[in-house]
Design a protein around this nucleic acid. Structure first.
Lengths: 198, 198
DNA sequence: TTTGCTATTGACATTTATGTAAGTAACCTT
DNA sequence: AAGGTTACTTACATAAATGTCAATAGCAAA
């Protein structure tokens, strides 16, 4: 009696579902990422998602890993370009801030905190750690660099959540936080440079 | 057939409910702040909360206003002490960070973002704005001070959400973000001082 | 073509949060 | 002490999210 649709490979099916979940997260927030909504976006049923991900929290974990790779990949690429002289410090800042804002990392983190799904945070932390390894690849990985990275990520996350409302209330430009982060990171990079020469 | 409990004034009832909601928010996250859970904490029924707050989102808004006043009141007090020489810069930083972490402001903001209840954010923004007015009360309210305030709040929010996980992953002390904020705010205060004298 | 595997579906069950309505009883006023 | 106001409760209704299970059917291999 059922009208089964075209069969996809498990990988393809999971990939479409995760992309749809990411879009839903960015557009409408974590609460809108339900099995029914995600399934509807890719023309499937919620039972189908349960088949592929096992449970709703399984989908959450998979989405966290998916988003982390995507986000950190973009940022790592920008850092590489900067190191080779092709990009600017501002590029790193913008990409990091965009990752949390437009790419949904901030919304995801809120969701994980809300649902108390701590396991799902692991892939994000791992991805950021890998990102730091990338930055310090030139054999230069010290305490201060880790601190500056922490500051950059914290400000990016905070800005994604309340930047718009708060900067407006304080009569500041929307990109004030990015400007500050750029100045800070610029100083940090100069410092690293000097230490590297010494 | 009903065993009606002792009648409280609407104000007392609302106050107990809001305190219980705050505790629940801090202990178990936004998702645990339901009508049933809050009512259970104060020995009432969920219908009673609907009677006092009109709806679930009415409770959310009331909680936002309640938390904002509480949090910003504490911070404003610390700033006053610092201005009069009784407190340190570190006190301001610690109180701000605690407000978002231990007092639940970060969880509240995540909740508002999650539920898309933008109206509920108004009292928080207003409270922070009032806080800035307090800081600049000595007739000293300029662009840079607003920027430094923004940076402090953003880092406090980010640290409350991911500070523990991230600092651990980067082999940093849990209070690294607070140390950085303290240094930044210290420099800013010195700068204000110099400009004030000039 | 036939057979096996499994992606996919529809129907049902469960849980939980929110909301409505009517009745009960506590407290204040007169 | 009587009566009115309303805080409070129980019972019911509704909607949405998650999960289970058997049945169907697409696709590849034999």
């Amino acid at each position: 009696m059922s009208i089964a649709k075209r069969r996809l490979s498990p990988e393809a099916s999971r990939g479409m579902a995760l992309a749809a979940a990411r879009d839903l997260l960015i557009e409408s927030g974590p609460q809108s990422v339900t099995l029914k909504a995600v399934a509807g976006r890719i023309g499937r049923t919620h039972a189908n998602l349960l088949h592929h991900f096992g449970s709703a929290s399984g989908l959450q974990k998979a989405l966290a890993a998916y988003l982390s790779d995507e986000v950190c990949g973009v940022i790592a690429q920008a850092i590489m370009k900067t190191r080779s002289g092709e990009g600017t410090v501002r590029d790193i800042v913008d990409l990091t801030f965009d990752a949390f804002d437009k790419q949904g990392a901030a919304a995801l983190w809120s969701w994980m905190m809300l649902t108390g799904n701590e396991d799902a945070l692991d892939p994000i932390v791992d991805a950021i750690h890998a990102l730091v390894d990338d930055i310090g690849e030139g054999g230069h990985e010290d305490h201060e660099m880790h601190e500056d990275t922490l500051a950059l990520v914290l400000m990016a996350l905070g800005d994604a959540l309340i930047g718009e409302r708060l900067s407006g209330s304080l009569d500041l430009a929307r990109n004030s936080a990015r400007d500050m982060a750029e100045r800070q990171l610029g100083h940090a990079l100069e410092r690293w440079q000097q230490e590297h020469e010494a």
